[in-house]
């Protein structure tokens, strides 16, 4: 029943070249949108801060006398429990922000906003990475705001720690953001996000060194200790802890005792030879996990290979 209409021919368009400036504009636009949305959603900003502050002001104060922390690197003396859990709470901020971002992507996919990103004429890996960086920028803002408030609660890392913690925050934020990106491709509906809380956020947070040192966990449960050792979030928290105290990659002071110059990654205090570099395991693990999670997320969002295509595509299978 088809009928022909005359075909019109035109000169074909030569593709526009996307130079570095175009990539930079795209990157800036995506990051700026994430930051703007966050700033406009004030309640989200405050609730993101209230969560770790409640832990700091109430939980930590309450448990100060119950949970003792011995001298472990990077601390060179006894520290209050509030001081110990501060890096863990920063990790909590990054973790929740990443999951919030994942939730937002599932929502975007359901409402279709994610489509505008995915049909942009740039490589999809670049678009997703830019979105990831946008989420990390928001998380870093939150972390520094938390550190500022914590300062007035006598959580006072060395001044240089505020600078050295920045790359650790970015790297840890990237890892957790990449995991969230991957999860957003796996979650089919917004309602499934409750499962993420139960099966990802809580296990990751509690089975880590965020709230207690690993050597204490080993005393209580060797199995949990093993789980926590292999939990990437543990490495993120320890990376932040050491970076906040300016100890990543630092030379060991030869005058330090073996006990105080050990590595706390798994709670076993390993004596280091004089002048040896501190362990970079945390950096390697966090960076490695970032690469793995991000690659998997890019694969999942690839229309020709990924899970999204098999399950009906971004937009929730609105196949009208």
């Amino acid at each position: 029943m088809n009928v022909d209409t005359p075909m019109r021919s035109f000169e074909a368009e030569a593709p526009r070249k996307h130079g570095l400036g175009a990539y930079a504009a795209c990157f800036r636009g995506i990051v700026w949108r994430e930051v703007l949305r966050f700033l406009y959603q004030r309640e989200r900003f405050f609730s993101a801060l209230v969560r770790p502050l409640v832990w700091l002001f109430i939980f930590a104060a309450g448990f100060r006398q119950v949970l003792g922390v011995s001298i472990i690197p990077p601390y060179t003396t006894y520290v209050l429990y509030e001081t110990f859990i501060t890096p863990g709470l920063i990790g909590m901020i990054l973790l929740f922000n990443a999951m919030q971002s994942s939730l937002s992507m599932v929502y975007d996919r359901e409402t279709g906003a994610m489509r505008t990103l995915l049909v942009a004429p740039f490589p999809r890996s670049f678009l997703l990475f830019s979105k990831l960086i946008g989420g990390v920028a928001v998380a870093v803002l939150q972390a520094y705001t938390f550190l500022l408030i914590a300062y007035f609660w006598d959580i006072t890392p060395p001044w240089h720690g505020y600078l050295t913690v920045l790359p650790a925050l970015v790297l840890s934020g990237l890892m957790l953001g990449a995991l969230a990106l991957l999860m957003s491709s796996l979650i089919r509906q917004l309602e499934n996000f409750a499962g993420v809380m139960n099966f990802v956020i809580f296990p990751m947070f509690f089975a880590s060194s965020a709230l207690y040192p690993l050597w204490r966990i080993r005393e209580g449960s060797p199995l949990l200790y093993e789980l926590a050792r292999f939990n990437p979030f543990t490495h993120a928290v320890e990376l932040i802890r050491f970076a906040l105290y300016g100890e990543i990659g630092a030379k060991i002071d030869p005058t330090m005792t073996p006990v105080s110059a050990g590595i706390s990654m798994d709670g076993v205090l390993i004596p280091l030879a004089s002048g040896e570099l501190l362990d970079l395991t945390h950096v390697v693990v966090v960076a490695g996990c970032t690469v793995v999670f991000l690659s998997a997320a890019v694969f999942a969002y690839n229309p020709s290979k990924g899970l999204i295509a098999r399950r009906g595509g971004p937009g929730g299978g609105n196949a009208g």
């Binding site: 504009a25 636009g29 995506i30």
Partner: peptide
């Protein structure tokens, strides 16, 4: 502006 950025158009 966001959409323009997605197409590499400067501010």
């Amino acid at each position: 502006f966001y959409h323009a950025a997605l197409h590499g158009i400067r501010k």
